Amino acid sequence: MNMYNTNKAELNAEVVQWLNKKTKSSNHRIIILDGFTFMLSKIKLQESVRLRKDNFFHQRFWKSLDRTLNYGLLRNKKKMSIALYKFYYGISLSEGLIYLEDGRAKITEKGLDFLKLPYEEQLSFLLSKIW
Rank of each mutant, 00 (worst) to 15 (best):
Y4G: 06
T108G: 09
F57R: 04
R67G: 02
S128Q: 12
E10C: 10
F87L: 08
I32T: 00
Y89L: 08
L117I: 05
L19K: 03
S25H: 12
Q17A: 15
E47G: 04
S124I: 05
I107H: 01
R52D: 06
E121V: 03
Q122N: 08
K8E: 12
L126Y: 00
A9Q: 12
L97A: 05
I91P: 01
K77R: 07
V15D: 02
Y88T: 02
D34S: 00
L127Q: 12
L97R: 00
K24P: 00
K22L: 10
S48N: 14
Q17W: 15
W131E: 00
T23D: 12
Y88D: 06
M1V: 10
S64R: 15
A9K: 07
Q59D: 14
Q122S: 08
E47L: 10
L11H: 12
R104D: 08
L40S: 02
K24W: 14
L33Q: 02
T68H: 08
E120R: 14
K42H: 06
D54A: 14
R52H: 05
N20K: 11
G35V: 00
I32Q: 00
K44H: 06
S48Y: 13
A105W: 03
T6Y: 15
H28E: 12
N55Y: 13
L93C: 08
E120F: 14
R60Q: 10
N5H: 15
Q17I: 13
L93H: 14
Q59V: 11
K116D: 10
N12Y: 13
